[in-house]
């Protein structure tokens, strides 16, 4: 990994951590666990579009580990990891299918699968089938959040082209 690439990836990790920190200061919009805008996904999307899946995974992993060290607790690490990597896998697949175009569709898929992963972990931990009733809420919330982050990543793209050129 070249020095410039390493620097850019570190920069993105920092950016996503900042976004994550700011977002966690926003009070929950709806009284349902797991519903949040997921703004740090903007960084994941930008990287997915411009860098390799492996590099995106690295940045995502670093962000989750650091954020749970800094702000979270052990249990939320499990939720985050499950949601993040399920959605990363789905987004990488969809993004490949769509050849880097329609990034908002990728992120809508990511939003849904992120919430699916978290709900699955919540079910495995609580073992109460009632928590699965959150599913329709979480799907819709994932769609809205995914659309928003996708559009952010879409509009950020043209300003970031220069930064990435030749380095990622």
């Amino acid at each position: 990994m070249g020095l410039k690439k390493l620097t850019i990836l570190a920069l993105y990790t920092t950016l996503s951590l900042i976004i994550f920190a700011v977002e966690s200061a926003i009070p929950p919009l709806l009284p349902i666990p797991g519903i949040k805008p997921g703004l740090a996904n903007i960084i994941t999307l930008i990287l997915l579009r411009n860098a390799s899946v492996k590099d995106t995974g690295l940045v995502l992993c670093a962000r989750i580990l650091l954020s749970s060290l800094l702000f979270g607790q052990a249990i939320s690490l499990l939720y985050s990891l499950a949601g993040a990597f399920l959605s990363l896998a789905a987004m990488a697949l969809i993004n490949r299918l769509l050849q880097n175009r329609y990034i908002f569709l990728t992120s809508v898929t990511g939003g849904i699968t992120h919430n699916l992963g978290q709900l699955l972990v919540a079910y495995l931990i609580t073992k109460v089938s009632g928590v699965l009733l959150y599913l329709p809420f979480l799907i819709l919330a994932g769609m809205v959040a995914g659309l928003f982050t996708g559009l952010c990543a879409h509009f950020a793209q043209k300003y970031l082209m220069k930064l990435h050129h030749g380095f990622l």
């Binding site: 249990i75 931990i125 609580t126 009632g130």
Partner: peptide, 13 residues
């Protein structure tokens, strides 16, 4: 909908 407290793994249904 149930009430859930995920950190304490508590569900009221």
């Amino acid at each position: 909908l149930p009430i859930t407290c995920l950190p304490h793994r508590l569900v009221i249904q």
